[in-house]
Design a protein around this nucleic acid. Structure first.
Lengths: 311, 311
DNA sequence: GTAATGTCTTTTATCGTGAAAAAACATTTT
DNA sequence: AAAATGTTTTTTCACGATAAAAGACATTAC
C-alpha cells in the first residue's frame, strides 16, 4: 500500500469549501499556499474537480461550475494522517482501564491491531516518548509508565513554572508589541463564549489552548513553547475522556482567564502572578480529579492479551 | 544487510574483560544480567569463546583456558549501535562550519552519506528533534535551527530553573536518604580529581554529568530528569569541540562543585541557592564563549551541496 | 520580464522482508 | 523444586522498494 493520499484528500475537501465563496479559483501556487500543499497536489485536486464537473479548467481559467455537494467530499476518516490514526488508537488503549504502569508495549501487536506497518508505529512511539508516558528499554520493548497521579503532578509542576515565567515576560512586553492586539482579540472571544456558554461550552478547550500558547510564546524560549505540546496533548484527551461537569468547569475557567487577561493588561507583576497562580491551581485540580484513585502506579506482572502486556 | 550484530560484539568484548578476573564464568542467566543482554546473545558469545579456545564449555562448566589477546576483541567501531554512528556523523556536520540556521536537512542524502538506511536516519531525526536544534516541516524536510547563541541562552535558562529547584529539593531531603551517601562519594571523587588535575583533567566531564544528574533526580520530576539528556548531549559535544583552556575551566568547575556540595550538606536553602547560581553562571559563560559570533541565526538561502542545503 | 503553467526529478512516507536479539517454552541437572 | 541448559517462537531493528507529495526545471502566457 506504501502511502495513503490523505494529504490530497484533506486538501481537496478544504478546497471544496473554498468553492462556495468564489466564481473562480486563484493560480496554482496561490492555491498551494492557501491549502498548505505543493503544486503537485493542487494539480491533482484541480484535475479531479474538472472530472467531476465542479470546475472548468483551462490553464489560468478555473471557473466554478456548480456548488459542491456532500458526495463530492472524501470521507472524513480518509483524510487523517497515519500518525493521527495511530495516536488516537494508542490513546484509547492507554486511557481504557487495564492499562497499568509497568506494562509492556508490543510494537508488532500494536501495528497489527491498528492495521499499519511497524515502522509507523515505531516512529510514533519515539515521538510520543517525549510526553513522559512511555519509556524504552534498550534493545527491547517499551514500558508504559501510566497516566497516574504522579504523572499529572509532575506535568503541572513544570507547567506552573513555565507559565508563571511566561506570564511575567508577557506583562513586561513593550506597549507596541503585537501581542496586546492578540490578547484583546482573545478577550473578546472569551466574552462572547461566556455569554453563549449554555450552547457553546465545548468550544472552550480550543480557545484555552490558543490563550495559553500566546502566553507561552512570550517566553521566547523554544523549550517552554514546545512543552506546551505535552500539556495540550494531555488536556486534549483528558477533555474527551472526562465530560463530568464540563460546562461548569469551563464557565469557571473563562472567568479565570478574563481575570488573568485583566491582570496582564495591568502589567502589574504581582497581579499577573496572582491571577496566573489562581488559574493554574484550578486547572491542576481539574486534571487531578479526573484521575481515579485506582489508576496508581504499581508494578504490573504476568501477561495480558492485547497491546499492553504485564511485564 | 538488515541488522548488525553490534550488541553481540560489544557484549563479547565486555565479556572478554571479565575473563581476566576469574577461572570460570557464571551461569548463562547471570552473565546475561551482568552484560545487559539476553541469554540468546550470551550463548552466542560462549560459542565463539569455545571456538577460539578461550574457554572450555560443557553445560554448567565454563572454564577459562587462556587470557584474552588483543586480536580476540572485535574492533571498537563494530561495537557501536547504528544510532550512535548516525548521531556522531550528524553532530560532526552540525558543528562544522557551514551549517547555518535555516538550512534544510535531506534524509535521503544523509542516509547515503553515512551509508545507512533512511528509516534509521528518520528515527534518529525524530529522537533528536527534542533537543530543539531541528524542526520538521509537515510532509517535507527538516529545518536546521542551528547551534546559536539564542539556543544556548534558551537551554541554560531552563537548566537554571530546573537545577535551582532540584538543588532546593535535594537540600530538603531527609537525613536518612541514600543520596547523602552518594553525595559523599562524589565529593571524594572531586577531591581526588582536584589533586590529580594536571593529568586527569579530561575525566571531569563524566564526573560533572554524574553530579548534576544526582541533583536533578532529587526533583522527582521526570521532565526535569529527562531534560538533563538535552544538557548532557550539548555539553558532551561542546567539550569535544572546544578544548581551549579545558584544564583551567575544569579546575574552576571542580572548586565550584565542592562549594556547591558543601552548601547542599549545610542544608541551608540560601547557601544552596547561592552556590548553585554561581556554578550555573560560569557554566553558562563557558558554553556561550564557545559559540563564535558568526554562528548567529540568519535565514539562509540558496542551495549548497551536502547534507545541509540552504532553504 | 514576471508569473503562471506544463513536465520531469527528487524526497518523503510507508510497507514487507529477513537477520539479530529477546523472550517463551521444554528439558535436564543439581 | 529451584535453577540451569537446550530449543523454539516472537519481537525488534534495519533495509530496499514503491507510491504520494514536494520540488526543480522548462516552457508559455500576459
Amino acid at each position: 500500500m506504501s502511502k495513503s493520499n490523505n494529504v490530497y484528500k484533506d486538501a481537496f475537501n478544504r478546497c471544496l469549501r473554498l468553492l462556495d465563496e468564489t466564481q473562480s479559483l486563484p493560480s496554482e501556487p496561490e492555491l498551494g499556499t492557501l491549502l498548505g500543499v505543493s503544486r503537485t497536489t493542487v494539480r491533482s485536486i484541480l484535475s479531479r474537480m474538472e472530472e467531476t464537473g465542479l470546475i472548468a479548467w483551462n490553464k489560468r481559467n478555473k471557473t466554478v461550475l456548480r456548488a459542491p455537494r456532500p458526495e463530492d467530499f472524501f470521507p472524513e476518516e480518509e483524510t487523517d494522517s497515519l500518525a493521527e490514526i495511530i495516536e488516537r488508537s494508542f490513546m484509547r488503549r492507554l486511557l481504557a482501564s487495564g492499562a497499568e504502569a509497568g506494562m509492556q508495549i508490543n510494537e508488532l501487536e500494536l501495528a497489527r491491531e491498528i492495521g499499519v506497518g511497524t515502522t509507523s508505529v515505531r516512529e510514533f512511539l519515539i515521538r510520543f516518548s517525549r510526553f513522559g508516558l512511555i519509556e524504552k528499554r534498550r534493545n527491547s520493548h517499551w514500558v508504559l509508565k501510566g497516566f497516574t497521579r504522579a504523572f499529572a503532578l509532575e506535568l503541572t509542576e513544570i507547567r506552573e513554572m513555565f507559565e508563571l515565567r511566561s506570564a511575567a515576560a508577557f506583562a513586561a512586553l513593550p506597549h507596541d508589541s503585537a501581542v496586546w492586539a492578540d490578547l484583546d482579540r482573545l478577550e473578546v472571544e472569551h466574552r462572547q463564549l461566556a455569554s453563549d456558554i449554555a450552547t457553546r461550552f465545548n468550544e472552550f478547550s480550543e480557545l484555552d489552548e490558543r490563550f495559553h500558547r500566546l502566553i507561552h510564546r512570550a517566553s521566547h524560549n523554544r523549550f517552554i513553547v514546545d512543552f506546551y505540546d505535552v500539556i495540550a496533548m494531555i488536556f486534549h484527551y483528558h477533555y474527551q475522556w472526562n465530560k463530568a461537569e464540563e460546562r461548569q468547569r469551563n464557565e469557571v475557567a473563562i472567568q479565570e482567564h478574563l481575570a488573568y487577561i485583566a491582570a496582564l493588561k495591568s502589567r502589574d507583576p504581582a497581579k499577573v502572578d496572582a491571577a496566573c497562580r489562581k488559574h493554574l491551581k484550578s486547572a491542576r485540580q481539574t486534571l487531578l480529579s479526573s484521575i481515579p484513585e485506582g489508576r496508581q502506579a504499581q508494578p504490573a506482572d504476568g501477561r495480558l492479551s492485547g497491546t499492553f502486556a504485564r511485564a
